[in-house]
Nucleic acid binder design. Structure first.
Length: 281
DNA sequence: AATAGGGTTACAT
DNA sequence: ATGTAACCCTATT
């Protein structure tokens, strides 16, 4: 359509960096309004700044694919990137532990039936795949895709969706990217995996007794692709086996949680009893 | 009103 | 065809 896509110039990027150094991350409007940087950012909104910063720090985060080749500036800096090393903020570029995602409880009924919570569903699938096929070196995108395709209904642009999703997760520090493979970060607690998603309901172990079912899409090639099917079946057996141990580990975790809760509840109950007795006497 | 985050599109490889 | 960067949309505060 009519959307030429205005690429960021080095000047703009520098202005943004300087602005973040001065105001800190998240103060996009301040940066944009700051007369120091405004002339460079005339065509950019605060949202643009935010998006750009996200992209830049995304590549700086992991294996910095794009980091060094940015220095042919050599221009006399008229801006004041870190003029006053005031103790207030020096290294704001490292947000460090960033945890939120407190299960926002999306009750979506406006758009398509499955539109609203797609992202969390995809996250679930991704983590399911990664924890089931425990590859020490991580999983390739294609591996994740084919794994998920086996057990979930996916749109045909799923690979694309998944790749951007993976990218985001890496940016959020929830996943780790090694070359072309994705790996779970050391954490991987239930913080990320809501127990009510894939296991925890009636079917803790995704049973896959029947042969890998095909999707009724045009993507499916032909029934005589037996080699691929065999490979898939084999991978599937392995996945199933390994998944059991994962589920077991998960169950242990859950048990621990419950006993903890029980302990707490017990002490509360004790307190209540004492109060009750005092009231009675 | 401003920000954060998921999703989409244009572009490059 | 896939990865990336710019852009868009929306929930949340």
């Amino acid at each position: 359509m009519g959307n030429p896509k205005q690429k960021w110039t080095s000047e703009e990027e520098e202005a943004l960096k300087a602005g973040v150094a001065k105001h800190g991350t998240g103060k996009w409007k301040d940066i944009q309004r700051d007369p120091e940087f405004n002339p460079y950012l005339l065509n950019r909104s605060n949202i643009d700044l935010k998006d750009k910063w996200r992209n830049m720090s995304c590549s700086a985060n992991g294996q910095g694919p794009r980091e060094k080749s940015r220095n042919s500036k050599a221009k006399a800096n008229t801006d004041v990137p870190a003029a006053q090393p005031s103790a207030a903020q020096t290294a704001t570029t490292v947000p460090a532990a960033r945890d939120a995602a407190a299960a926002p409880n999306l009750d979506d009924s406006s758009k398509g039936a499955s539109d609203g919570k797609n992202f969390s569903m995809y996250n679930q699938m991704i983590f399911e795949a990664l924890s089931t096929l425990k590859e020490p070196n991580g999983l390739e995108t294609s591996a994740i895709v084919s794994f998920i395709e086996q057990r979930h209904e996916v749109p045909q642009n799923f690979r694309r969706l998944l790749s951007t999703r993976l990218r985001r997760l890496v940016a959020q520090d929830k996943l780790e990217k090694i070359q072309n493979c994705y790996k779970m970060k050391s954490d991987a607690d239930e913080k990320l995996q809501h127990k009510d998603a894939s296991f925890g309901t009636k079917t803790p172990v995704p049973k896959v007794e029947n042969k890998p079912r095909q999707f009724q899409n045009s993507t499916y090639r032909a029934p005589n692709d037996s080699v691929e099917e065999a490979a898939i079946a084999a991978a599937y057996k392995i996945a199933e086996a390994e998944n059991k141990s994962f589920v077991a580990a998960e169950a242990v975790k859950e048990a621990e949680r419950i006993s903890e809760m029980a302990e707490e509840t017990g002490s509360v109950l004790q307190l209540a009893k004492e109060i009750f007795e005092k009231c009675n006497s």
